[in-house]
Write a protein that binds this DNA or RNA. Structure first.
Lengths: 170, 170
DNA sequence: AATAAGTAGCTTAGGAGTAAGCTACTTATT
DNA sequence: AATAAGTAGCTTACTCCTAAGCTACTTATT
């Protein structure tokens, strides 16, 4: 009867079907995208938490180390730059830096050009740890993606998401 | 030179390019999907928070009311069912129910068949509020989606996400 | 040079979640 | 019938975040 090929059903289909029963007037099309985006974010996030936990850090802490690592030599940024990049308040950043500094993964030193500011620098141990952890985090994501989609469809998905994200974050 | 049509660049492209500079050995393909999924989830989440705040509730509280509403008459579920559906610990659910009960949006009553359990029921005010709020939340999502993609591409995106989510949540 | 306005990072108070453990009750086993 | 095991919901302690406000310092204006 249906002209569409068989699709696997997922939890969002069930939610959409429930709404159609009790509120058939609602247009739930957008939920088919954002409902799945939310659930995927959460599911993969939990797996990445576990991957990073093996290195003794949380996902938020990994993000700090990774931002420093990505910035290249000398692996130094200000707390301000870090909290802007990670969309975190300065109070939240203070806490993360405290933990990471206590763990010996980074170091705070005065900014030579601005006495209000600090420079946060990756220690050698921090660089080594993040170099390992980034591989573990990517492995989690790669495994989940390649289990579901071949390279062509994965690329299609990435392109559609890019368009949506670019328009959304404007 | 490029055979691919011009793509809008987004923040994930920048992050991927940074990694390629400092760690060219890494395969960041999966990040092109999950990095965007994470950022989209966060960006839309913030907008939905604001939409629900106009009704005096948080997104988590909306989810409780919406789950009850979707379940149909008589809009009653146990705290256990709610915390399972919403992937929340029972402790967290206790807190949400406390707030919503204080606001007069739902009611807790003893389960007539199991004296350990409760039945959580939407009040009339709760049903009216969630019927309004669900429209506001969908409007946020619909606006973001239709600003970026036409109906055909949005459907393609939903289908790819369904495949990925079904495989991921298994 | 004096001063007003802006910025950097930290502190504090409060919110919302988890994990672990509790009591009360139900179900399965003997 | 007695009892062991399981389940429901709540409480407590803890974590991590935000919002607001602080001090110290820098930049712009007069």
């Amino acid at each position: 009867m249906s002209e569409r090929p068989e699709q696997p059903r997922d939890p969002v289909d069930a939610i959409v079907a429930q709404w159609a029963e009790v509120r058939p007037d609602l247009d739930t099309t957008a939920m088919e995208v954002f409902g799945r985006v939310n659930r995927l974010s959460r599911a993969i996030g939990e797996r990445m938490d576990r991957a990073y936990a093996r290195f003794g850090i949380s996902r938020g802490e990994f993000d700090v180390l990774a931002t420093l690592r990505r910035s290249g030599e000398p692996y130094a940024l200000s707390p301000r730059q870090l909290s802007a990049t990670l969309m975190l308040t300065t109070g939240g950043m203070t806490g993360r830096l405290d933990k990471l500094e206590r763990a010996g993964l980074l170091r705070r030193s005065p900014d030579p050009h601005d006495r209000r500011g600090l420079r946060v620098t990756l220690t050698d141990r921090g660089r080594e740890l993040v170099d390992q952890a980034v591989g573990a985090g990517l492995a989690v994501q790669t495994e989940a993606l390649s289990a579901a989609l071949d390279a062509g469809r994965a690329g299609q998905l990435a392109d559609l998401l890019r368009e949506l994200l670019a328009a959304t974050e404007e």
